[in-house]
Design a protein around this nucleic acid. Structure first.
Lengths: 151, 151
DNA sequence: TTAGTTGCAAAGGCTTTGCACGCGC
DNA sequence: GCGCGTGCAAAGCCTTTGCAACTAA
């Protein structure tokens, strides 16, 4: 978000249009929210844009996110046991660490490099499009708290 | 765990008891069903054991599966967009290919070997317990059908 | 103008929770 | 006998669907 003179490139609007979708206020709000807060759930986004666009409903957010995901504008991510998250980073095949305690999500790049685990040892006739890697762990904060709890 | 004369080893019962859980008819049925049909959902299992144990309810199945998962007897697997699946294979870190069309699930071992992608490039202070790798693809059958449909 | 989007309402699927009865140990 | 596990009922959360009004193009 760089202030500029005259006409801004307005990246979000361009991205939406480039994806073949119409540019609307709710869509802009959703995309900008997602740029600022990756790994947001539909509910998070709804809460985040509610103040700016009071008329927008949860279902509208779901619809927008579905449209974005279908257009390849955002990527879905389903952490086990919590609602679907969305993020803007698409194209690069990064993965996620999820804290099993506080559900925090963090991006990580795979050790292997560009195309990480895209090659299963035995494809069994499957054609593989993409690989989702989810690391389950404990974030730093939760490690400390868990040490105190001492289960 | 060697087969013995006279008394059957009764693996499922032993496994349940070894996990510190009481052995009951529904639990045996669930575990045996899972041995024969890996990647079953709670609903699948419910349907599978209903004939043998008509009194067992869906909620009971959920409870049993939760207890098994907590005891490390079974492993949960959440394919994006479909209900949670369960499987008996635990300990070995195998992964899954999911057909995006028919939702079929297949086990695969990772290319890397024993501890596949357990080492994220940047752990950010996280302690990683496990890595879930999910390959999204198209199974052989769906490939052929998709070729005809020709989207 | 025209097609795509939004708003509103409602339903749907999957899963969890609460409490009394029953069974394994 | 004791305590865990089950059965039954109900609610909960997340998400999708349907239709009318609206707005971007």
């Amino acid at each position: 978000m760089q202030a500029a003179a005259g006409m801004e490139p307005d990246l979000p609007a361009r991205a939406i249009r480039a994806a073949g979708l119409k540019v609307t206020a709710p869509r802009l709000a959703v995309l900008e929210m997602l740029r600022g807060a990756p790994h947001s759930s539909a509910e998070d986004i709804f809460a985040g844009i509610r103040s700016a666009l009071p008329g927008t409903s949860t279902q509208a957010v779901y619809g927008i996110l579905s449209a974005f995901a279908a257009a390849g504008l955002v990527r879905r991510f389903d952490p086990p046991g919590s609602p679907t998250r969305f993020e803007c980073r698409v194209g690069d095949n990064h993965h996620h660490i999820v804290c099993v305690r506080c559900r925090a999500v963090r991006d990580v790049d795979c050790v292997v490099g560009q195309a990480p685990c895209l090659q299963p040892s035995d494809d069994s006739g499957f054609v593989v499009f993409a690989a989702e890697v989810t690391f389950n762990g404990l974030c730093k904060t939760c490690q400390e708290q868990a040490a105190h709890t001492e289960v």
